[in-house]
Every structure is written in C-alpha cells, then in structure tokens.
Simulated scan of single mutants.
Amino acid sequence: MTSTALPSAANAVTGARFSRISGTGSYLPPRRLSNADIVADLAQRGIESSDEWIVERTGIRARHFAAPEVNSSDLALEASRHALEAAGRAAADIDLIIVATSTPDMVFPSTACILQRKLGVHGCPAFDVQAVCSGFVYALTVADAMIRSGSARCALVVGTEVFSRILDFNDRTTCVLFGDGAGAVILEASEQPGLLATDLHADGRHVDILCTPGTVSGGEVLGQPLLKMDGQAVFKLAVGVLEQAARAVLAKAGRSEADIDWLIPHQANIRIMNGTARKLKLPLEKLVVTVDEHGNTSAASIPLALDHAVRSGKIGRGDTVMLEGVGGGFTWGAVLLDF
C-alpha cells in the first residue's frame, strides 16, 4: 500500500510546543482472504458460517494475512518507509521510534528496536507500547508529550500486528474478525498546533473479556496463547467509553462535535463504529471505514485507516480529525488533531 504526503510541518523547530503529522504510510501483506475463503476453511473443520453472517454482524468482507516468515517488524518497516517518503524525511532524521503492537516479533527486545535496526538508524529511543487495539492512540499521545517536552523533534509512530498468529480457527466468533497490517505516521515538532488534545484510560477489571491468556515459562507455552473474547461485553463497553473519550478531547481542545471533519475509530466492528458516530451526532459520511477490507488489525487499524483517507484525498490540511481506540485491558482513548 502506498501513501500520500501531507504538507510538511515546520522542520526541527527549536523549543516547539506542538506536534503535527507530516506524513502517513501503511502496508498490507499481499495475501487477501475473503469471507468465502474463511468460510471454506471453517467448513473443513465442521464449523458452519457464511459471508452474510459475517457481514451482517461485523461489516467485514476481507482481511489480509502475513506469510509465516513475515513478522510485525517487517510490516512496520514497509509502512514506515511510506510514511518517511510522504513526509520528505530520511530515516536518519528520526529521533524517536514508538511501536504499538500486541504481536511482537519476540519476547524481547522490542519490535521498535528491531525496526530501528532494519531502518538503519541508531541511538534514538525506541520502545513498544502495549495497549492492544488502543495502542496507536496511546503511542501517539506519548510521542506528542515527548515532542512538546523537547525530548524529540521527529518521531516515527507505528501500529503493526500479525493477529493471524493468535487466532483460534475453531472459534468462528473471533477468527473471522482479525487481520494483519501496519500503519505509520511521522510526527514532527511544529509552531502550529497539530495534536490538539488526547485522552487515555484503562480499567483492569475487564481484563478477561478480551485477552490472549498464554505465556512462556521454561521453554514451554503455559495457558492458551489464542485470542479469547466476550463479544457482547466488549460491544456494550466500547460504544459508551468511546463517546466519553471523544467528548473529553473535544472539551480539552475547546471544540464541539460540529468541528469534526472526519472520525477514524478503531476498525473493529461497523456496528460499534456507526453507534459512536450517531452518539456524536455525526453523519456517517464523516466516518472513515476500512474494516470491510482490512478486518480488525488491532493497533494498526487507526493508522491504516488514516493513511487510506489521506491517500484517497478525503483528509487534507485544515481538516479536524478524531481518532479513537478501544481494546483489551480494557483500554480506550481518543486524539483530536488538525492537519
């Protein structure tokens, strides 16, 4: 997947108080699986499903799966290259790398450090953020804070996932939902406000409703390292907390719902996305939707959708965009930004 450049932010502004996205990029692995492909696989396992059932409940028609030898860092590398090209930056310009992922290449080091090596840069801080589907919103918030504090001036922020590795293909309620991919942005110091406000939350009381309860000990896998989800519980929580986070960032920024040009929620389920738009009194035409072709790509879903909207000409300089994420933890958050 290619990317489209946004007008660049101020370059290396000494003492800048703001951060602004100067380029976006994304990447999807070549293997595309339609609902028919997934349904056929389920049928071989004796599990009944249908394209109609999946579309009606989720809005998903296809997703992409990475090849067995491809890791999260590989997807991240391609998305990062596209974002750097869009921003008119070289990898050597990066002085901060934050990767949001729940499917890292290995236990340690971080996927961010592995990505740093693949980009051929050295010395700058590089670390992962683990907030599942809210990960990109969390990572963007951290990068913004570091730029505002003067700790960084040109940050690479990536969401990347290979969720196909942790799916239970005997569970038709979850295996049809997820896909692989990566999205990235270059966030630069700017004299003009870009990120206007952020709002992050978590509630560990709901750990069990969306989790992958496995770990490694003594060279063996303990527990069940496959995704488990209570769909109804997630749905009930998601719509409410997304509305709360959206209203919180609007209040912090001194804006109203009418100021939102585009809403980019985590691409999990079209019913949750439409419900959030309705609660904010936004016409569905202002909702950026990629879940139909990407499925739920967890931390990658928001930057993938953002790059798609920029690349297609929907989002341009001067637009106000709301990003929202909700995921396991239970975590949620929102970012309001101007391009």
Rank of each mutant, 00 (worst) to 15 (best):
R247T: 06
R172N: 09
M146K: 11
F178V: 05
G240Y: 10
L196A: 10
V221N: 08
M146G: 03
F169R: 14
A248G: 05
L222K: 13
R148H: 03
I209N: 02
N170H: 14
L156F: 09
D180Y: 07
C133S: 14
V176G: 02
A145P: 03
V157Q: 07
V137C: 10
F169H: 12
A233T: 07
L140M: 14
H201W: 14
F235T: 00
E220D: 11
E257V: 12
G231T: 02
S149H: 07
A143L: 06
D171M: 05
V157Y: 06
T198Y: 12
A238G: 11
L167E: 08
I166C: 14
T212R: 00
A251K: 15
G135K: 02
V142W: 08
L227T: 01
V241R: 13
A238I: 04
D171H: 04
S256R: 14
L200F: 12
Q224R: 15
G150A: 06
L177W: 02
S256D: 14
M146E: 13
F169Y: 15
Q232G: 11
A143K: 00
A152I: 02
M146Y: 12
G219L: 10
C175Q: 02
V241G: 01
K228G: 13
K228A: 12
G240S: 14
Q224G: 05
L177D: 03
G218Q: 09
A253C: 10
L222M: 11
Q232F: 04
G181M: 08
T215G: 13
G231P: 01
A253P: 03
L250P: 02
A246H: 01
L156R: 07
L222V: 14
T215Q: 12
I166Y: 04
L222R: 13
L226A: 09
L140Y: 08
V132M: 14
I186C: 09
G223F: 09
C211K: 13
P225R: 05
V216F: 08
P213Y: 11
V216A: 13
D171R: 03
S134R: 04
V239N: 03
K236T: 12
V185E: 07
E188A: 10
H206A: 13
A143R: 01
F136L: 09
G218D: 08
A139Q: 08
R247Q: 14
I186E: 04
T160Q: 10
M146F: 13
V162I: 11
A253I: 06
G204S: 12
I186K: 04
G135H: 04
C154Q: 11
M229V: 03
K252T: 07
Q192A: 11
L222E: 12
F235K: 00
L226W: 05
P193N: 10
K236V: 10
L140C: 12
L237V: 00
F178T: 02
D208W: 00
V137F: 07
L140P: 02
R247C: 10
F178Q: 05
T173P: 00
T141W: 05
L250H: 03
Q224F: 15
Q244G: 04
S134Y: 06
Q244H: 15
L196R: 13
P213H: 09
R172S: 09
P225F: 05
S256Q: 14
Y138C: 07
A152H: 04
G179H: 02
F163H: 08
L237M: 09
T173R: 11
F235S: 00
